[in-house]
Write a protein that binds this DNA or RNA. Structure first.
Length: 374
DNA sequence: AAAGCGGGGCT
DNA sequence: AGCCCAGCTTT
């Protein structure tokens, strides 16, 4: 394994070109803010986190406030961000931190908290506590794979990349400012050493990059092929009570959309559902369900989902076990994106032959936003 | 080692 | 229509 290049040119570049980001502003060094940003940024782009970070911080300004909050508030604030286990773990970790009287200030201590793996422990240790460690995220994998021209495909290449990245901390300059060094690596990967069309001419390491010398930088890192996505179908039931409230159901705490709200329905399966077939899965018996036109599409990492929506007016009644009547505005805000798309079908006309309303329309007119089709 | 787990932004 | 993203947890 060749020596890594000197970190000095990278740090000099960072001092001139570092990105201005919400979690780099005032309050610097606050481990709560840095931890929150790292968790939000797990598999999530800076652009997506941007508008959500300040909002979350305003609602839960410190770890004590987050620890004291009920899960429903945390879930509603996280809704739409995805990977909801992050929110569950964030909440649990906040309670653990509050109970022990503050954040652990070492990588090993941080690693014990729920939702903190090898990457996040190293990132918080370096950025919040200036511990000399190198977190390896997608940016660092790409930068190191190119610098050293590592052709082994991911994820196997991590066995080579991680120790190579760790060797940077043998140098004096990064040890003097670990937080800046690791963020310099992130910024380099995000703005110069990008997945496609990297700006090698502007790179502080342009003379040190083995892949660039070989002209293969755009092909690295190589990746193993991933499995194909399955397709599943659902039919869901939206009941409205006389006050206009919606009947929603709590999903189980673990698994897909764990701990989040949903519009109750028949289980997702390979075959499509007919309304009659799905009727036993309706949340309330004996209602005059009418199918809406259109299908809500939602792609998860491992599954493409197509959902239809039936609606009915319900008499005033207590919500069944595990469900709740909710005002439409607060309900929609607390729903994960897949369920928001499904809910938007309620603006569509009734499906052909679905009830007393004459058809003749062409489907979900006015509902052709992303994920909706007729 | 592989699979489950969201959603948005960009090409 | 893919690919990628400041990954973690469970099997």
């Amino acid at each position: 394994m060749p020596d890594p290049p000197s970190a000095i040119p990278l740090l000099a570049w960072y001092d001139r070109h570092r990105r201005t980001l919400p979690w780099r502003g005032s309050g610097g060094g606050d481990p709560y803010r840095i931890w929150l940003s790292e968790v939000m940024l797990q598999q999530t782009t800076v652009a997506a986190v941007g508008p959500r970070y300040g909002r979350f911080l305003a609602r839960f300004p410190d770890v004590a406030a987050l620890a004291a909050a009920p899960w429903e508030d945390v879930a509603a604030e996280w809704a739409g961000l995805g990977y909801y286990a992050r929110a569950r773990n964030l909440h649990a970790a906040a309670r653990a931190v509050a109970a022990r009287g503050g954040f652990p200030d070492t990588e090993a201590g941080l690693r014990e908290l729920p939702g903190i793996g090898a990457y996040t422990a190293a990132a918080v240790a370096a950025i919040a506590f200036n511990r000399p460690t190198v977190p390896v995220d997608g940016n660092v994998e790409r930068v190191v794979a190119r610098l050293l021209s590592i052709r082994t495909p991911l994820p196997a290449a991590r066995r080579i990349i991680a120790p190579a990245a760790a060797r940077f901390m043998e140098q004096e300059a990064p040890r003097a400012r670990p937080g800046d060094f690791v963020q310099a690596l992130f910024d380099l990967g995000a703005t110069i050493c990008t997945p496609r069309r990297p700006a090698c001419a502007l790179c502080p390491w342009r003379g040190d990059c083995a892949a660039q010398r070989e002209g293969i930088q755009e092909t690295l890192p190589a990746k193993s092929p991933k499995a194909a996505r399955k397709r599943r179908h659902g039919l869901h039931f939206l009941a409205r009570d006389p006050a206009g409230r919606l009947l929603l159901r709590h999903r189980p705490p673990e698994g897909l959309l764990g701990g989040m709200l949903e519009i109750p329905g028949a289980p997702w399966r390979e075959d499509t559902w007919t309304l009659e077939e799905a009727l036993p899965h309706a949340p309330l018996p004996g209602l005059p369900w009418a199918l809406r036109a259109g299908i809500a599409h939602h792609g998860f990492t491992h599954m493409d989902l197509e959902m239809r929506l039936a609606e009915a007016a319900a008499p005033a009644a207590p919500a069944p076990e595990g469900m709740a009547w909710m005002e439409p505005a607060s309900a929609q805000a607390a729903l994960p994106t897949a369920m928001r798309r499904l809910f938007s079908l309620s603006e569509a006309p009734l499906a052909e032959g679905a009830g007393a309303v004459a058809s003749g329309g062409t489907g979900a007119r006015g509902a052709r936003r992303k994920g909706i089709s007729g």
